[in-house]
């Protein structure tokens, strides 16, 4: 579904990615792991077209993504979240969610300016949709809260909810449980499973919490210094000596942490 082929990215003298190739199949939950600075976020930034790769190809459902502009990516069904939060801090939660629905606003600017009924109806419907999802998640009390005042974990969750409102086929999640406590992480794991299973959304996620990754992902890709050093099921990756040396560390059994 999503295919990355021989992707390289160079920042000045730094080779951030070196001929990275992998595929994400429809319906999978795939983990992308690796030590700090391995290039995980760079992979996301390239898929979302923030940068042009130095070399390589990215395609989604047969279409060459490198021919698209960043704002066109979401129209194909690829939606991402950001490692350091992509929420708009001076908007309320509801307003953030409405930006998530941006691609469903088609009223002409003139109709908006004149306050024509179709523009009002559209605004009303989109608000209803966002509020419905908030209520479904038992978060409706947060609708009018300003984002910057909320705890980090809540913000991470809201960014995920906003991404869902953009109607993704594939979700790219950059460290979705960073800054969360154990209970929040468990809830997030269940939520991601449901998004994947019940709503049929494919997931590619970056996360440092190995318990979280191993318990959730169907398949794991390990990056180190910009190269893919291993790929496979959780148990396979955990046994891989190169992965242990590069990332998991000698003697640290993941099952125990």
């Amino acid at each position: 579904m999503l295919t990355v082929q021989d992707l390289s990215m160079r920042f000045g003298g730094l080779q951030a990615l070196d001929r990275v190739s992998f595929t994400v199949n429809e319906g999978e939950i795939v983990g992308l792991i690796g030590p700090n600075g391995a290039g995980k976020t760079t992979v996301f930034n390239l898929i979302s077209r923030l940068y042009d790769p130095t070399d390589g190809r990215i395609s989604f459902r047969g279409e060459d993504l490198l021919r698209l502009r960043p704002y066109q990516i979401v129209e194909r069904g690829i939606v991402r979240t950001f490692q350091l939060l992509g929420l708009f801090p001076y908007m309320t939660v509801l307003e953030n969610l409405l930006v998530g629905e941006h691609r469903d606003f088609w009223a002409h600017p003139i109709a908006v300016a004149l306050g024509l009924p179709r523009a009002r109806r559209q605004e009303h419907d989109r608000r209803a949709q966002a509020l419905w999802l908030l209520r479904f998640l038992k978060m409706e009390a947060l609708a009018d809260a300003f984002v910057f005042a909320l705890p980090y974990g809540t913000q991470k969750l809201i960014e995920l909810v906003r991404a869902l409102l953009a109607r993704p086929r594939v979700l790219l999640l950059d460290e979705p449980v960073a800054g969360m406590n154990a209970a929040e992480k468990a809830a997030m794991r269940e939520f991601i499973k449901r998004i994947n299973h019940d709503w049929g959304i494919t997931i590619l996620l970056v996360e440092h919490d190995m318990n979280f990754v191993m318990g959730l992902c169907d398949r794991i890709i390990v990056l180190s210094y910009g190269r893919v050093i291993a790929e496979g099921r959780a148990d396979e990756v955990q046994q891989n000596p190169e992965v242990i040396a590069a990332y998991l560390g000698e003697g640290i059994s993941v099952a125990r942490t």
């Binding site: 979302s48 923030l50 979401v74 129209e75 929420l87 908007m91 930006v99 941006h102 691609r103 605004e123």
Partner: peptide, 28 residues
């Protein structure tokens, strides 16, 4: 009307977090 619409929100989104705004489909 414009300020409170998706257009006004797009303005603010591009002002505060241009990358996130674009990733949600806002054409800068």
């Amino acid at each position: 009307n414009v300020a409170r619409s998706y257009i006004g929100r797009a303005f603010i989104a591009l002002r505060d977090k241009p990358a996130a705004a674009e990733a949600l489909g806002i054409n800068p």
